[in-house]
Design a protein around this nucleic acid. Structure first.
Lengths: 253, 253
DNA sequence: TCACAATCAATCAAAAATAATCACAAACAA
DNA sequence: TTGTTTGTGATTATTTTTGATTGATTGTGA
């Protein structure tokens, strides 16, 4: 049997079973443990499966408890909520807007629904820039150091780059929203970038589903009143007294 | 049996079976292993099958890479030459180098072969940045306007960004090399970016297969003596008198 | 906490597969 | 005819894959 063939079959097998042990795969394919482990290692690198201690699991079976899941794994969470939020956010873009799009999965989802081709777009997400380009939009990217896990652009060069511009609208992701800590994110470098972006935007929108409320991450990048929150369901009135809250479910009715 | 005829049959056979070994094809077509392998190599270059260790698989069951450049058709030309050039170029990178990687398909190919994880990398290609990140390399990206077709970053912000840095090595692509017009490219904006990159690099390497020689495109971005050409076969001695020419075929001996 | 078992990564040698080279034969052109 | 090109098979050195071994790491239960 071809090496490639066996690896393809292993992926199918794992996707069907959702989780398998090395011993199980040895039995199934008649190969040694070393070979199976090597296969799992390359398939893991190719992001076709997820290698775990003792075996492997399919990609869709994501682990929700990781500190900061990789872009692909994280994207699976709260799909419907994100979709509604993203669609509404995209509809806010007008002609002649100069739009900043923050890195992150929520804002990436939003790009799918952007229809305005007359606005100008700028982002610090590598994947975001590519998606914008594929839609034929007028796209710019901020320069700087690239963070491996989230594929976001960060660092002093990035902040300096942002400081030259003045956006009419900024669409931001966040990891936590709380009354006393404001908008927070786990990475200090990303927080600095977000902070600068919000500072240079006429209006900043925070895209966040209900699960983000009450959470606090390591670093604050903006205070609650500085941004307009776009979320999917009712939240504490404490937030609405300080900023405009667009409840997407209500909007759709 | 005609060579061409046999190759067509091999493609059909592989498409039907999805994956076959060389031994299987020897049996089926009564040819030697050498002949079968030659056929597979040809068919692989023609993108009609995918050659793997031990045999071949059909094109259809390839993993759909979500981030492949749409230029795949164009990229099929001069595969072996580009591969040899790319490998050699990648081998030039040392620890502590600050490497600029120009946008374009040749330099994208080169990233595959980069092994040095201690060097720092910076690029104006969006896909390039993503590939570098996926390899776990220390990656930066230049900011600026994004050009839709080539997914390259260009414009005044890009040039200003480059001007802040000093690269130890720059790896550049080109559309034409000629004695009187120097290195040329069709797009004015891209030319300006390339010009600035060469200006800020201690050594600039031009990656170009033999087909680029004698060609002239719209805009010149550097003169012949300013860069070191890495190419695949002998070219006019007029070039070698003005710069170092690394003949990859000779290098391999 | 500890010990123990299971699992893993690194290494090595053997086997399999490959690429490069050579020589031969058939097809072709002058 | 003669010389050249093209395809083929055999040979050989190199590369890839594989399974076994070993020492390190991880998870489990006392």
């Amino acid at each position: 049997m071809l090496t490639k063939e066996r690896q393809d079959l292993i992926v199918s097998y794992i996707n069907e079973k959702n989780a398998v042990t090395v011993a199980e795969l040895m039995e199934e394919f008649g190969a040694s443990a070393a070979t199976i482990r090597r296969d799992l290692a390359v398939l893991h690198d190719e992001k076709r499966i997820i290698k775990v201690f003792g075996g492997a699991t399919s990609i869709s079976d994501t682990d929700v408890n990781t500190f900061e899941p990789s872009v692909s794994a994280k994207a699976a969470l709260n799909i419907h909520e994100k979709e509604a939020i993203s669609k509404y956010a995209a509809s806010l873009i007008n002609d002649d807007d100069f739009v900043y799009i923050d890195s992150g999965t929520t804002t990436l989802e939003m790009i799918k629904y952007i229809t305005n081709t007359r606005a100008k777009y700028i982002t610090n997400g590598i994947v975001h820039a590519k998606k914008l380009l594929e839609k034929g939009l007028n796209t710019m990217i901020i320069g700087g150091r690239c963070k491996p896990t989230t594929e976001a652009i960060i660092g002093p060069d990035c902040i300096e780059g942002i400081s030259k511009y003045h956006f009419t609208k900024a669409f931001m992701g966040t990891n936590g929203i709380s009354l006393h800590a404001g908008y927070t994110t786990p990475d200090v470098d990303e927080a600095l970038v977000k902070q600068e972006a919000v500072k240079h935007a006429y209006v900043s929108y925070i895209l966040a589903d209900h699960s983000k409320f009450g959470k606090v991450s390591s670093v604050t990048f903006a205070e609650i009143p500085n941004c307009c929150i776009i979320t999917d369901s009712e939240v504490s009135k404490n937030y609405s007294s300080k900023t405009i809250i667009k409840n997407v479910n209500e909007e759709k009715k």
